[in-house]
Structure formats: C-alpha cells, structure tokens
Design a protein around this nucleic acid. Sequence first.
DNA 1: TATTGTTATACTCTATAACTATA
DNA 2: TATAGTTATAGAGTATAACAATA
Lengths: 157, 157
Amino acid sequence: MTDAAQDIAGNAPQGGDGLLAGYIGYGMKRAMSIVQADLSRVLADYDLRAVSFSALSIIVGEPGLTQTQLADALQIERSNLVTIIDELAGRALIIRAPVAHDRRRHALMPTTEGRKLAEAAQHSVAQHERALFACLTVAEQAELQRILQKFRLAAKS
Amino acid sequence: MTDAAQDIAGNAPQGGDGLLAGYIGYGMKRAMSIVQADLSRVLADYDLRAVSFSALSIIVGEPGLTQTQLADALQIERSNLVTIIDELAGRALIIRAPVAHDRRRHALMPTTEGRKLAEAAQHSVAQHERALFACLTVAEQAELQRILQKFRLAAKS
DNA sequence: TATTGTTATACTCTATAACTATA
DNA sequence: TATAGTTATAGAGTATAACAATA
C-alpha cells in the first residue's frame, strides 16, 4: 500500500462519496439504485418486476385502458409492453377484453386474482418503502416528495 | 371517446400523474429520467456518456487509481470498465500508466487534453443542472441534496 | 390513410465465469 | 493461491421499423 495510486486514493474526499457528490443528479442516481434494489427484492416475492408491478397496479386502478394508453402511462414503447401483458395475462392476473366498436383495441381488465395480487404487492411495497425511508423524519419524507413533484411538473421532458 | 376505456381513463387522478405517485420511489424515478435525459444531451457535445464522464472526472480528480478502484468508485463491474477505459484511452484523454512493483495494475492518469475536456464538460454539466433545477428555490435545491445524502448514507446497500 | 397490437431486430447495460499474467 | 485486467457471453432494458387487422 505504498504505491502512488494508493497514496492518492488515500487523499480522496472524506465522505467516501467521491468527487461527483456536488451534482444533484448524482445524489438522485445513487439514491435511486438503493430504492430500486429494495423494490426488486420485495417484488421478487410476487414474481413481479418493477415494470409489471406498475402495469398491474395501473390496470387494477384504471381498468379498461388499452395497451397504447398503458404504454403511455408507463412511459415505455407499446411494442415493449406486449411481453409484459403476455406475462400478466399468462398468469391470469389480467385479461385482454374486446372493446365495443373497435376490434383493434384490447381493454385491459384485472382478474380477481390480479386484483388480490396487486393489493398484496402494493401493501408490501408501501411497507418496505416506509422501512427504507425510516431514516428520514416524516417531515423530510414529505418534503422530499413535495420537492420531487414540484421539479417533475416544472421540468418535465 | 365514448367507450368504457376512455370513460374510465377520464376518471384518472387529477395531476395527470398516475396511481403510483404515492410512492417516493416513483417520484424519484421520474425525476431521475428527466435529469438523465438532460445530462445525456449535454454530454453528447463532448462525445461522452454519463459513465465515461464520471470515470474521466474521477480520474482527473484522483489520478493514479487502478481500474478495480475506479470500478468500485463507479459501482460497476471491473469487466465492464474495460471498454470505457479503452474508449477514453483511445481518445488520448487518459493513459494506462505502469505501477511500480506491480505489473498487473494500471495507474489511470489523465492527459492534458483529458483534464481540459473534463473541466469543460464539468462546467457545462453544472451549468445545465443549475438551469434544470432553477424551477426549485435555492433552499429547496439544498434541502433536496441534503435529504438525498442523508438517505443515501443511512440506507446504503 | 391512420391506428392498434404485434413481431423482429439491434443496441445498450449489466452480471458472471473463465482466462492470462503477475504477485 | 490470490489478484488485476481482460475476454466472452448471456440476460435485461430500450428503441425503431415494418407487418396484419381494423378503422
């Protein structure tokens, strides 16, 4: 541990947090990866990925959406939604129901089982998120959410 | 617009922001995608991706790191760092310098051109980040950063 | 002609295992 | 034996183009 690399590395900034900590985006990215890892862990119990959890939750909350509408809500390409819907439909969590007067579209409807799974998963996710953010005060959590929403609405795109 | 899907979609939550807005993680993810898109746009002017910008910045700030150390700092696998270093070295922005007494390791050193590019890119990124977050008050920006850092340090893993 | 769902495809990102050369 | 860098590869995630059915 006497070579130049180690000497210089030893002089690195205190926090152990690197030279990019000055950027807000950096902090958000690192925080995100923690949240995503936690989310993936929780959803694994339900055999769901983050995106299929989101899709199922939206279908349960707004039954009757078409695939194009759901893809817009999820901000993904509708071509990439197909396999997600295939997966959820294959597990009988949702069905592709026909839409009156337009046989091109599918109305996405949750099954009873889909509703039950969504509610259980949502409960679990909310619970784990509460635990994950317990290191922040309730005021800080609220403030974080408020600031993020303000940013999101103002800066969108 | 008279079919069931549209009727129900019309009843969606006010903000236009979906049913998942209750989760902090959801807000962070959406905010992140805005920040990342902005960052990619800025760095395109320098032919850098986010990860190569981070790598170059760290090498400039802490010259002499080995690839394994840099991979740890970037939180990526060292196998995936190879092509990033290849790219930076191929553009003569950094060099793989030999390390005394250990011929396995490479000390990553910026060239003069690398230092200049890093500084220019950093300036540009900081400027664009300031503009992007101008929709928040200075106090909100500071609070966001503080809360994110507190979360990151407490919740890490 | 335009739109919906779909298929095919390509490109990036990420994770793992195994190799080589050095230690 | 263990470590640093490297290669190869496989799996996600994502974006684009084109097609069939339908409007």
